[in-house]
Amino acid sequence: MIESAFLNFSLTVSMVLLLAGLIFSFIRLVVGPTLPDRVVALDLMTVLIIVFCGIFAILEDKPAFLDVALVLALVGFLATVALARYVERYTQREQSTRAQKGQQ
C-alpha cells in the first residue's frame, strides 16, 4: 500500500477530478443533440478510462493495469474510426436517397 500521506491525498483528489470529467462527458453522451456529438463524447470517455487505469495502477501498486490501458488505447482508436466512417456513409446514403426522391 501507499505510505505517503501526500500521495494518498493527491490520488484521492485526482480520482474525484477524473470521475467528474467522466460524468460530464457521459452527460454529453446522453443529451448530445447529434450523432457526432455522441461519438466525440465516447472518444473522450475512452481516453478518460485510460487515465483511470493509470491512476488505479498507482493506487493498487500493480503495473498490470497499464496493459488494460494499452489495449484500451488501441480499441478506442478503432472504435472512433469505425464510428466516423459510419457517420460519413450514413449521411452519404441519406443524401443519395433524398436526391432519388427529388428525381421521382
Binding site: L7, S10, L18, S25, L44, V51
Partner: peptide, 24 residues
C-alpha cells in the same frame, strides 16, 4: 519524489476534468 508524483498526478487529472467540462 512523492510530492513530484502527486503534483503531476493532480495536474493531469485537472486537465482530464477540464476536457470533460469543455465537452459539456
Amino acid at each position: 519524489m512523492d510530492y513530484l508524483i502527486g503534483i503531476v498526478l493532480m495536474v493531469g487529472a485537472f486537465f482530464a476534468m477540464a476536457a470533460g467540462l469543455g465537452i459539456l
